[in-house]
Structures are given as C-alpha cells and as structure tokens.
Design a protein around this nucleic acid. Sequence first.
DNA 1: TTGTAGGCGTTATCAT
DNA 2: ATGATAACGCCTACAA
Lengths: 325, 325
Amino acid sequence: MTRIKDVAARAGVSTATVSRVLNGATVTPDLAAAVRQAVDDLGYTPDRTARSLRRRHSELIALVVPDIENPFFTSLARGVEDVAREAGLSVVLCNTDEETAAQEHYLRIAADENMAGVVVAPAGPSPWLAKLAGRDRAVVVVDREVPDDVDQVVFDNVDLGRRATRALVAQGHRRIACVTGPHATPTASDRARGWREALAEAGLPAPDDLLVHASFRVEGGESAGRQLLDLPERPDAVLATNNLVGVGVLRVLSAAHHPEVGLGIIGDLPFVTSRMDSTVLLPLRPREMGLTAARMLVARIQGEPGPARRVVQPTRPIAMDGTSL
Amino acid sequence: MTRIKDVAARAGVSTATVSRVLNGATVTPDLAAAVRQAVDDLGYTPDRTARSLRRRHSELIALVVPDIENPFFTSLARGVEDVAREAGLSVVLCNTDEETAAQEHYLRIAADENMAGVVVAPAGPSPWLAKLAGRDRAVVVVDREVPDDVDQVVFDNVDLGRRATRALVAQGHRRIACVTGPHATPTASDRARGWREALAEAGLPAPDDLLVHASFRVEGGESAGRQLLDLPERPDAVLATNNLVGVGVLRVLSAAHHPEVGLGIIGDLPFVTSRMDSTVLLPLRPREMGLTAARMLVARIQGEPGPARRVVQPTRPIAMDGTSL
DNA sequence: TTGTAGGCGTTATCAT
DNA sequence: ATGATAACGCCTACAA
C-alpha cells in the first residue's frame, strides 16, 4: 500500500507537509500543488485507523436501531445517512433486534472503535448511554425517550394517540380498540395513553379488553387483531399505534372481510397493497426525524456546547382515504 | 480511559502479558487469572483502532447494498449479521442508492478503515472490487453477478424467470407481460430472459410491448403496470421480476379492479396486505443468501485459500394462492 | 512555512 | 513463559 511517506518522497517534501496539505493547514502553493499531484499519481488515501488512533476519534458514527427490517428505521437511517455524508461521516448501522444485550454490545464497540458519535433508538435502558456521554462522545437518542441526560428527538406520542383516536371518533366509531406495543416501549404506552385520553374526552368507554399490548411486529398486529375480532362485543374500529402492527391488523381485517371495521394507523406504510379508503393514517416521516437527529449529532461532534436538548419532531396532519395507495 | 498499561500495572505484569491473555497465547494460570481480574475491575476493553492499526485489519466488515429500504436487502443484512456476530465481527451497513459513485466511496472507506472484508450487492461495475481483492482483503459479491474474479453468491435468475412464467402459463394465461428492472441490472435482464424462454417453450409470443424495463422500485412497478393496462391488447397476466415492482403492479391491479389479470412475483412480500389468492409467488429467502455470503467471507478472512467461487443460492419452490397472507 | 521527532494503544519480535 | 521495545501510519508540538 501507498503511505504518506511515499507521497512525501514523490513530492520531495516531508510527511508533515503532506499531512498539512491534506488537512488544510497553510502551505506554500507550489509545494501544495506538488503534493496534490503526488497524491493523485499514487491514488493515496490516508489510513483511517492510524488517523483515528492519532486524532482520538474516527469518522464513523453508529446508528443503533431495534429492528432493521422495520421500514420506519430504514427510512430514519436514510435521513441520518444523508446528513452524515454531508459532514464527511460514514454511518455504521447496527441492529439490536430489541435486545438490550445486543444494544450494549454495539454501544461498547462504538466506544472502542472511537466512533465520533452514536444515534440510538433504544431497545431498553442502557448504562452505556451515560458512559458514552461521560467520555464526551456525541450521543443522540431517537424515537424512544430515555431518562438519561442526553440529546433526544422524539414524537409527541400522547398527542399522536389522541389525534388518531379523535379522527376515528369523528368518523362515527363508538367502540374503538387499541393495539399497541410492549409496556416497556415508551412510544407504545404513550400512544395508548393518548387513545385513552381521547376516548375519555369523547365520553366513550375504554374497557381493558379493548387495549391489547402486542409485539411491535406484523405478527403482533395479526394476533391482536384476531383477538379483538373474537371479542363478544366486537369493536367497530381499531387503532394500531405502529406501522407493522397496522399491517398485521389490516391483514386480519381484510382476510376476515370486515370492511365495516374502522382502522387508524400511526406510521407509514410504504409497501401496503390494499385499498385503504377510509383508513385514518398518521404519517411520521421517519426520514425527517433522522435528519434532525443527525444534525444535532454533527453539531455536537463539531463541538457545540450546551445542556442536553429534547426536541419534539413535528408530524404531518392526518390523512384519510388511502392517500398512500 | 483505561489502557492496557493500567491493567498491566494493576496485575503486576507487563503489557505484553496482558495482550497475550486477551489474545489467547500461553500464560501461566496465576498470572492469567490476575490479569483477568484486573480487566474486570477496570472494565477494560482494548482500543480497536490501535488494535486495527497494529494487526493491519479491523473486526468490521462492510455490507454494501443498493437500496436499504428494500426488505430484500435488510433481510439479507440480517443473515450476514448473524454469521458475522458468530465470528466476532460487526457489520457496517452501507447504502449506495444504486449509484456507483457512492458504491466506490464506501468500498474505498472499507479499504481505508482496514475492514476485514466486504459483502457487496453491486449497483454497477466497480474497479474497487478488483483493488480490494488485490490487496487481499476478503470480498464476496451477492445477488448481482459481476465479471470480476471474486467470490459470488447469486440466484439462477434465468431459471427463476422461467419457472414463474411457466406457472402463469399453467394457470391458463396466454398473453403474459413482464415488468423487470434496468437493462444494466443482471438480475433484471436474466429474469426477463427466463420469461422469454418460457414463453417460447410454450409457443406463446413475446412481443416487445409486453416487456417493460422499469426501475426496481414500487413506483417503477406502478407506472409499468399502468402502461400495460393501457395497451390496446391488454395482457392477461403480468410477471413482476422483483418484490418492489411486484408491490407496484399489485397496487395498480387492485386499484383498477382487475382481479382477472394473473400475477407472478419473484421475491418476498413481507408487508403485503391484500389477498393474493391465485398469485404466483417465488420466494427468494434473502436471509439465506446473506448467510451463505457471510460464511464464505468469514472463511476467506480466516485464511481459506483457493480460487474464487461462484455459488448458486437455491430457492424454495413456487407458492400459489397467497401463502404469505 | 517547513522539517524533525515523539507519541496515540496495541501487538509482535527478540531476548532472557 | 515473560518483559522490554520496536513497529503500525498518522498528526502535531517544537525547533529552525
């Protein structure tokens, strides 16, 4: 491989001068030109491990997500990536499969690789978040709120639940069920809280059997949907608080031929194929969330001071009648 | 931060001994125990940039894919990740957005970061593939064949096209269209070739206007689907040669209420919501392909010699009548 | 402005 | 088997 000393030799200068040209320090134009010529001739690019060792941090950032097969997170990843590339950083995408052990594993690696920063959608509580922040590495938490004192980008999940439920109420539904994620997932419990609040607001009951906690996956939505359809007093509408759960419920409803049951979905459905005429859709635009988070991270990496910030990512207004088709 | 010298001091040994304990060289049991104790006490983990610099390669592998929002590639990524983790490697996921420039960018980074290896689903021809192989770094190409002399894992795409088409013929369709990807994408052209061959085999015509080259995206399938429905002689079946294109065509067909038009799809549809009663589905199981590719890569990283191998990834038999619902 | 030289943290060589 | 020490390739005081 070609190293910095090769470039120096070819350009007839010292390695220090080559380094300075590459890093934008002041160098006499002729010398700089000679160096650049030599760099081109040899196709030289700096060894990033050596650079990282010396600079004490790399040009990599980690994006840690709980489910890489969920389009929400891939879309978020696109947003992060776009900002990162702009800033000369490359993104390492890590999938935790909703396991905190895997999450800690990846956060530790990020630390040991001296990565410039980390964007995390946490699968659960994480001691390493604080450790990373403590070693003053940039950390931004997205989507799922944590108690730690770090930068965060989240939705107003209670409000999302409220708005989606209100729309179903406005459609005339009176017995509205809610399928949400695990208790421990803050987006799941907050959106369910919004659902409960909106029902109370409308003077409608929210009996226990109308709230189902499933996994935030397609199968979770399917089994929850079946469970609700089997209820003695079947609901006349269902709110799915997440995109995958929405797909599951949608499958059950269309397979069971229950078009009269109303449906609300919080989240985006990029690959849905059925008509969704009167479905209440609340798009979250995860890519925008990724942009926001990455911008905050880049600012921190570039040395922005100040206390941890908590940003609420705005969402688009509700859409009815299958705009996504 | 805690360094190897801190551990050495605490255990009362030299840094060399600590390193040996960590890397499994032979050390007297007592000393080894003392070292391990010190490591635990201090919560020491080696700095991976320093290690990479010294060892000449890191414990990262790159997975370069053309479209991270395509479930095919996220599922493939899961497969790669599972094998990699088993081998103590972490995966850096890179999205090229079907741009060869981005692809070259990431391959260069993989080289400059001294990553242990690279799995690439190429967006196009790539000089860096040869360069990496030349620097004897492990390289495995997946899904889309390249002329380079590197390890490859591909489907028998011509056969996939043939089998899907034959199934549509067997359903009684006589005028079968084909929506495929860009000419330059080998999976697209090969599957279209299989379609053409199967039609010839059945004595059916394959006029030019029944073959549409679209982008391998949902919108590509939608516009191609509309174009086919607008034909003076409308096809009685459509073969979509990729999952996203399949979603697009499916949307157009269901929106236009043309249940009588047959449909075949090569690929998996994890988020489909409509009933697909008589649809011909050819699952590809991308996760398995990821497993195969990662196993080959790990073997090479561990020093397996021998010429480049070209492996054909087997696929499941055809499924009819909406097993995916 | 430029060059010399030391050090980032680890592993590998070479003595012992 | 263990310890001292020289690299790995780069950046950055410091000196000139």
